[in-house]
Amino acid sequence: MSEMLKITGLKSTVNEKEILKGVNLEIRAGEVHVIMGPNGAGKSTLANVIMGNSKYEVTEGSIFFEGEEITDEAVNERAKKGIFMSFQAPQEIPGITVENFLRTAKSQITGEQVKAIQFKKEMTQVMKDLDIDRSYAQRYLNMGYSGGEKKKNEILQMRILNPKLAILDETDSGLDVDAVKIVSKGVTEFKNEKNAILLITHHNSILDYLVPDVVHVMVDGRIVDTGDISLAREIEKNGYIKYREAKGDAEWKKEIKLI
């Protein structure tokens, strides 16, 4: 499997506060990686830095995508190269329908005009797979959607745009069991030997349906442990107690913003 994403010594600040403190990560095509960790560990910051969000300043380290350094590239350039990110709280966009948004996005990413009839056929099939009512195609993007509908809509975007690397930030957050199954099915059907998935989650429920190749634990802006699904099960049973004990209780509480 070829290398998809490589991160070396990555440090990043937000409003002059250092959040990432030296992240190293490698993801190969065909792999599913999961990042877990307590609140404030830097998981969402890492996702945003990979995507190129200008709010986050990279102060040290490098990001490579398919062998090319993209550390300083803009969000739209990363999207064109095949990087996609779902968000914890998807934005509501009045006046733009789901269908028009997706057609425009696909045209910009591929650089080709998307044929309306062919696109509608593809979108209708994916919506059916995700148990999304066809009427949503003509609704304004995320306007009046429930939390579950927003998350399913992001999986719809991922399936339609078909990126090489999909970064899913808390995609399972707030979903009921049925919605988790549907979202997991959508992600599983997207996965193949030519793409890769980076899933950030607090929960293990989605891992009952989407088995990762690698699980990482992030604490205080660093990846401190890496393993397989058994690591996620250990955390489900014991929490992050061993990492807390290793750092000392007072220091741990500061890092996860409990005091």
Rank of each mutant, 00 (worst) to 15 (best):
D131A: 13
K106C: 06
D72C: 02
V49W: 09
Q125W: 00
K81N: 06
Q125R: 13
N48I: 02
T110Q: 07
G61A: 08
L20S: 05
V49L: 10
K150L: 10
D129K: 14
D133G: 01
I50D: 09
E112Y: 03
I63M: 12
M85H: 08
M143L: 12
I109V: 14
I83Y: 02
R78F: 05
I63S: 13
E77K: 13
G147P: 05
S107K: 10
A74H: 11
H33R: 05
I93A: 06
I93S: 08
N39F: 04
E69C: 03
G95K: 02
V58P: 02
L20T: 07
G52C: 11
G67V: 09
E26Q: 14
E57Y: 00
I132N: 04
I27T: 02
M127D: 07
M85N: 10
E69P: 00
E60Y: 10
N24L: 05
I109A: 12
D133L: 06
T110N: 01
K43N: 00
G37M: 06
V23E: 09
G147M: 05
V98N: 14
V32N: 02
P90F: 14
M51T: 06
I117C: 00
D72Q: 12
N39Q: 04
E68N: 10
D131H: 06
M127F: 07
D133A: 10
A116R: 08
E31R: 04
Y140N: 11
V114G: 03
